[in-house]
């Protein structure tokens, strides 16, 4: 687990460093922004799935790639048809992102509460035994 986190951190730092040296032309920035949203969505989805021990690498990876590609494609089609489809893409992905975040938070709070309850029980047991 620790090794995995270290590996991921190394990759993220490498990504930031390479990102600092990459210049995105202004005309492509819209596509990249939508792709970022799609990727963030699948990352958050993976996190929330991990909370429920339902994480699957294949689903994460396919979602990561396909979501981004479809989002970019939709934005492209929208710009061709003179419809702001990217707004719909942004709304959907942001909504899903927030949903995922909510479920992550809930799981976290629930686990915390359970631990707290166990702790209290143990304490009360100890007190009873002492008495």
């Amino acid at each position: 687990m620790l090794a995995g986190i270290i590996i991921i951190c190394v990759f993220v730092i490498a990504g930031i460093l390479t990102g600092l040296n990459v210049v995105i032309p202004y005309s492509y920035s819209q596509y990249i922004a939508v792709a970022i949203l799609a990727c963030l969505d699948s990352v958050f989805g993976a996190l929330s799935a991990n909370m429920g021990k339902k994480f699957k690498l294949s689903i994460f990876l396919s979602g990561f790639v396909c979501n981004a590609l479809i989002a970019i494609f939709l934005v492209y089609v929208g710009s061709r048809l003179n419809v702001d489809i990217y707004l719909a893409v942004v709304i959907v992905f942001t909504g899903r992102l927030l949903n995922n975040f909510t479920s992550i938070r809930r799981d976290f709070v629930q686990k915390f509460d359970e631990k707290e309850a166990k702790h209290k029980e143990q304490k009360s047991k100890l007190v009873k035994e002492k008495n």
């Binding site: 991921i8 990759f11 990504g15 930031i16 990102g19 210049v23 202004y26 990249i32 970022i36 994460f60």
Partner: peptide, 22 residues
């Protein structure tokens, strides 16, 4: 598997920083 996840996050963070910078 961690490396694969790391690769995905590598691209994500790269795009993010590049986008923010530009």
């Amino acid at each position: 598997s961690y490396v694969i996840i790391g690769f995905a996050l590598f691209f994500l963070s790269m795009m993010l920083t590049a986008q923010l910078k530009s």
